[in-house]
Computed example of a mutant assay.
Amino acid sequence: MFQNKIIPLSYLGPIHLYAYIVNSHQITIEQHANYQRKTYTNRCNITGANGSMNLAVPVVNIKNEKVSLKETLISYDNDWQKQHWRSIVSAYNGSPFFEYYADDFAPFYEKNYKYLVDFNLKLLETFLESIELEVIISLSDTFIEFNNEPDDIRRIIHPKASPEDDKNYKTLEYRQVFSDKFPFTPNLSVIDLLFNKGPETYDILKASILTEEI
């Protein structure tokens, strides 16, 4: 069991990230870094009937100014909540455990959150509750410089980073909703795993990390 991991802020983050979370006693979310586009901060990937889909939470655009994650505001100029939930329902309505967990996640697409960090944090807490796991979660008080120590996994959890390059992680395949149409798609949003495998989600995430610290 890892004692503490420094992780990036994410919107329904990928399985690679959640494997580390499940194998940690405590996690610290870095919230003082500047917001960056095209990261897991405000986007996730799922697979629907027509293939891979990218869901992105729009943020308020401040012209060329650097804004910390803590201060990043969610934009409601368009009805992205309805679109995201419609896409999630379309993708997973036929999955074995969607109806079991849907009511836990649906409220996030009805209530407006001001800050992205609050929205993502509550989603993380809801997921952990759904698999009945307690992890101590803290938000950074100040910016945490990147380091190459095992406790900092921010560099390896990125859309441009390949999970296969992480020697401590292995991809475990499971049956996905559209497996009859598409080959297995690794490292989707953790909700893909949850809706497809339900109570087995914890075991799969736990077994995805190859090394443990005492």
Rank of each mutant, 00 (worst) to 15 (best):
A161N: 01
K170P: 11
Q176F: 10
S140G: 01
S138D: 14
D166I: 14
K114W: 12
Y174C: 13
D151Q: 13
R154Y: 02
F146A: 03
S130E: 00
P163N: 06
L139T: 06
T171G: 01
P107G: 06
N148W: 00
F178M: 15
I144A: 03
Q176N: 08
Y101W: 04
K114F: 12
E134W: 13
L116R: 08
A161L: 03
T171M: 03
Y113N: 08
E125S: 12
K160F: 08
F146P: 00
Y174T: 13
K167F: 15
I153D: 00
A106H: 14
E164H: 09
F146Q: 14
D152L: 04
V135G: 08
D180M: 01
I137T: 05
H158I: 04
T142S: 01
F119R: 06
N148G: 15
Y115I: 04
F105V: 07
L172N: 15
F108V: 00
S138N: 06
I131S: 12
K111G: 05
L124P: 09
V177E: 10
D103P: 03
L123D: 02
S138K: 13
Q176S: 11
R154Q: 00
F146M: 04
L128A: 02
F127Y: 10
L116S: 02
D165V: 10
N147D: 14
Y115R: 09
S179K: 04
D118R: 10
F146H: 04
Y101P: 05
S140E: 14
I136Q: 05
S130I: 02
D118N: 12
V135D: 08
I156R: 10
I157G: 07
N148R: 11
D152C: 07
A106T: 15
T142L: 00
L172V: 14
L172Y: 05
D152W: 03
E164K: 06
D118L: 09
V117Y: 14
Y169G: 12
N112V: 10
V177D: 02
F146Y: 06
I137K: 02
Y115F: 07
N148H: 06
D141F: 02
N112K: 14
I131Y: 12
D104R: 10
P163Y: 07
L128I: 02
E132Q: 03
E173D: 11
Y109G: 11
L128K: 15
D180E: 15
D104K: 07
R175W: 05
E110K: 14
L133M: 12
D103T: 10
E110A: 07
Y113L: 11
D180R: 04
E125F: 10
F146K: 09
D180V: 00
V117L: 14
D166K: 05
E129Y: 09
E129P: 01
D151V: 09
R154K: 03
F143W: 00
E173P: 06
L128P: 03
N147Q: 08
Y174V: 07
F119E: 03
D141Y: 08
L128V: 09
N168S: 07
Y113G: 00
D180S: 08
Y169Q: 09
F127E: 03
S138T: 11
D103G: 05
I136F: 08
I157T: 11
A106S: 15
Y115G: 03
E125Y: 14
T171V: 09
R175P: 08
Y109L: 05
K122C: 12
Y113M: 07
Y115P: 00
F178R: 01
F127V: 12
